[in-house]
């Protein structure tokens, strides 16, 4: 693949006592969309701000297209950043907001060039009718579209998006998410997209980097991370409903829970004590021996979530389509042993 477009090399940042980022290594290939996923306080935003040049790292390098940019001013980096909270300058119209980055010194764009870029961007994002409105007279979705417009109108070499959809309605998020995937692909500009939303991470990323407490826990394709998470912490951050995590020990090639229920076959080479990760869609409501009581049935239209108690512990089961189950029903779930993720447990807690 040649040299990566962006290389983050051994990056660390400390604020007082907190290690916001420790020893981060990351690549971003040309044209790639990398999602950085993590809970609040994981260091996602700090990482973006260092790449943008708004923070200086305590150690490590940011290399873009072979050039060390670690200590360059933001203006020299030619990256566009979409902030989570800031959307637009309230005292300017939509057009002035879009013009602002183009009028930056050193960009030296002609008047016609500026006008062309703005009309192209406005058409692309379907905000052309809004151009002369004050930024304060926009709905949440329109504002976010214009904010994204501010980023793409510049034609930068890298997009940095910091949870741009977090404060929007669910429906709007869903629509803009698909628009963003298309936009990034059509423009071909590499993008780092920071989010804590599990749906955004899986559906948008070419690759996902899972960040927790300033460290990268795993990097890989969405399939990789969803199906083969390297730790329970990673597993819990992806997928909806959340993964079932069950602590077990092995006896006679069966995994037994703490309540001594043998729930699924174990591999001969598996460790003695382990945590199992079972995705809700890999538990089937029949075919097993241990009874489970259904406590709630959530019919979501295309699929149904069953919440219940199985082997003395809560479980989530995901069924495609509608079901005939009701709260209070007893089912005998079974698990596909090939679809279970096993992590060895070394010391008792």
């Amino acid at each position: 693949m040649g040299d990566p477009f962006l290389k983050i090399d051994n990056l660390s940042k400390v604020y007082g006592e907190t290690h916001a980022l420790s020893d981060i290594f990351l690549f971003l290939h040309a044209g790639e969309l990398l999602v950085v996923l993590g809970p609040t306080g994981a260091g996602k935003t700090t990482l973006l701000r260092i790449i943008a040049g708004l923070e200086v790292p305590d150690a490590g390098r940011v290399v873009v297209e072979g050039m060390d940019m670690t200590h360059c001013l933001p203006a020299e980096r030619d990256v566009a950043l979409v902030f989570q909270n800031f959307s637009l300058y309230p005292n300017k119209t939509v057009r002035q907001n879009l013009e602002f980055p183009l009028r930056a010194p050193g960009r030296n764009l002609s008047k016609t060039e500026i006008a062309n870029r703005i009309s192209d961007t406005a058409n692309l994002l379907r905000i052309a009718p809004l151009l002369d409105r004050p930024a304060t007279h926009l709905s949440g979705g329109e504002m976010q579209r214009v904010a994204i417009g501010r980023a793409i109108v510049r034609q930068p070499r890298l997009f940095l998006f910091d949870e741009p959809l977090t404060n929007l309605d669910a429906k709007l998020r869903e629509v803009l998410r698909v628009e963003l995937i298309r936009l990034q692909r059509d423009l071909g500009t590499p993008m780092i997209y920071v989010t804590h939303d599990r749906v955004e991470a899986l559906s948008m990323g070419d690759r996902i980097a899972v960040l927790s407490e300033g460290k990268i826990l795993q990097i890989g394709s969405p399939e990789d991370i969803y199906q083969r998470p390297n730790s329970p912490v990673v597993a819990r951050q992806l997928g909806y409903p959340p993964i079932n995590l069950i602590e077990v020990h092995k006896r006679a090639d069966q995994w037994f829970t703490a309540s001594n229920h043998g729930i699924v076959a174990a591999d001969r080479n598996a460790p003695q004590r382990a945590t199992l990760g079972i995705r809700p869609e890999n538990i089937f409501p029949h075919g097993g021996e241990i009874p489970a009581t259904i406590e709630a049935v959530e019919n979501l239209g295309a699929s149904t979530i069953l919440l219940g108690t199985w082997a003395d512990r809560p479980i989530h089961i995901l069924i495609t389509g509608e079901t005939q189950w009701h709260p209070g029903d007893v089912i005998y779930p079974s698990v596909d042993p090939n679809r279970v993720v096993v992590w060895e447990r070394r010391n008792e807690e």
Binding site: V178, R182, V199, L202, S203, M204, Y226, Y240
Partner: peptide, 13 residues
Amino acid sequence: VLGEYLGSHAYVH
């Protein structure tokens, strides 16, 4: 033209 992977399933455009 587009695939939204969600783990348990995907939405394919």
